[in-house]
C-alpha cells in the first residue's frame, strides 16, 4: 500500500528466536513422532528390499538378475521408457511454451486436462487401451485383419506407459516458464534472432534444470509403472514382461529371493532418482539466488 517507496527487507536472524520456539518436551515429542513415522514407513522397507534380495548371498542374487527372463524384462523396461520419456518431453516443452507464452481462451481447461492422467487409476489407464485395441475393441477387427498386435504386445505397453507419464515434464515446466515470463525471448527476437534460435539459446538454458527434473520423475514412473502395464501386457514371460511385472510373477511363484533381486534394481533406480532430484533442487535454489531480487 505504500506505493513506490523503497521497502527495506528485514535482515532475517540466522537462528530462530527463542520466543517462538516450543518447550523442549514438545520439540522432543514432535521430533520423536516424525522420526518414528519415517523409520517405520520409509527406512525399514528400504532396508528390507536389499536384505531380502541378498538373503541367500551374492551368488544367488547375481544369478537372479542375469536370468534370461529378468534380462528380457530389463530390456523391455528400457525400451518403454526410452520411447515414452522423449515423446512426453517434446509434448511438455510444446505445452509449456503454449501456456506460458500466450494468452488464449480455455487455458485453464487445458491445464486441467493435462493433469488428467495423474488422477486416473492405473488400472483404468490400461483398460482404455483394452477397449480400443482388444479383440472386442474399436480397432480390434481392423488390427486382426492386418495382423498388427498392439494389446498383449510391446506397442500396448509403450502406449500405457506414455499415458501414465504424460503430465510429468509439462507439470514441471509450465509454472517455471510462467514465472520467468517472456522478456528475454522478446529481446532476442527484437535483436533479430529466429524463433528456434531464441528457443535454443535463451529459453532452453533458462529451463534446463526444470526440464531435467521433469525427465527424472517421468523416467522413474515410466520404468516403475505396474497397474496400467499389467492390464495390457498379457504377462508373457520373456516377451511382454517389464521389470515390475517380472517382480510380481516371481513373487507369486514364491521365488522371493529372485523377486527381491529384480525389485532391488528398481529400488536402486528410485534411490538414483531421489539423489538426482535433490541435486537439481540445490542447483535451482542456487540459480534462483543468483537472480537479483527486484
Amino acid at each position: 500500500m505504500s506505493g513506490q517507496t523503497l521497502k527495506l527487507k528485514p535482515v532475517e536472524p540466522p537462528v530462530q528466536l527463542q520466543a517462538t520456539l516450543e518447550p523442549v518436551w514438545v520439540r522432543v515429542l514432535l521430533l520423536g513422532l516424525a522420526l518414528a513415522f519415517v523409520t517405520l514407513f520409509l527406512f525399514i522397507p528400504l532396508v528390507a528390499v536389499f536384505s531380502e534380495a541378498l538373503r541367500k548371498g551374492w551368488g544367488v542374487y547375481l544369478a537372479a538378475i542375469q536370468e534370461p527372463d529378468a534380462l528380457s524384462a530389463i530390456k523391455l523396461t528400457l525400451i518403454a521408457a526410452g520411447i515414452s520419456v522423449p515423446l512426453n518431453l517434446i509434448f511438455g516443452v510444446a505445452a509449456a511454451w503454449a501456456i506460458a507464452k500466450f494468452e488464449f481462451r480455455g487455458k485453464n481447461v487445458l491445464l486441467t486436462l493435462i493433469d488428467l492422467p495423474f488422477s486416473v487409476s492405473p488400472v483404468i489407464s490400461g483398460l482404455i487401451y483394452v477397449l480400443l485395441f482388444g479383440a472386442q475393441g474399436w480397432f480390434g477387427e481392423w488390427l486382426r485383419e492386418h495382423d498388427i498386435k498392439i494389446l498383449f504386445a510391446v506397442p500396448g505397453i509403450v502406449l500405457a506407459t506414455i499415458f501414465v507419464t504424460f503430465p510429468f515434464v509439462a507439470r514441471e515446466l509450465i509454472p517455471l516458464m510462467q514465472a520467468q515470463g517472456s522478456e528475454e525471448e522478446e529481446a532476442a527476437l527484437v535483436l533479430g534472432a529466429s524463433g528456434w534460435k531464441t528457443f535454443w539459446h535463451v529459453t532452453l538454458p533458462n529451463i534446463k534444470w526444470g526440464l531435467l527434473y521433469g525427465v527424472i520423475l517421468c523416467n522413474a514412473r515410466a520404468m516403475g509403472e505396474f497397474g496400467a502395464v499389467s492390464v495390457v501386457s498379457g504377462h508373457i514371460r520373456g516377451e511382454t514382461n517389464t521389470m515390475p511385472l517380472q517382480v510380481e510373477i516371481l513373487y507369486n511363484e514364491y521365488n522371493f529371493t529372485a523377486a527381491f533381486a529384480v525389485a532391488s534394481l528398481l529400488t536402486l533406480l528410485a534411490l538414483v532418482t531421489l539423489a538426482l532430484k535433490t541435486i537439481v533442487e540445490w542447483k535451482t535454489d542456487e540459480s534462483r539466488q543468483r537472480i537479483p531480487q527486484e
Binding site: 520409509l42 528390507a48 528390499v49 516403475g224 511385472l245 525389485a263 532430484k277
Partner: peptide
C-alpha cells in the same frame, strides 16, 4: 535432516510393485 527431507519422496520414486511386495513381506 537433509537425508530425511530427500527420502520423503521415496514413495513417489519407488515402483508400486516393489512397495507392495516389501510391505507384504514385512
Amino acid at each position: 535432516k537433509r537425508l530425511i527431507d530427500a527420502f520423503v519422496d521415496l514413495p513417489f520414486a519407488l515402483p508400486t510393485a516393489v512397495a507392495g511386495i516389501t510391505l507384504a513381506t514385512l
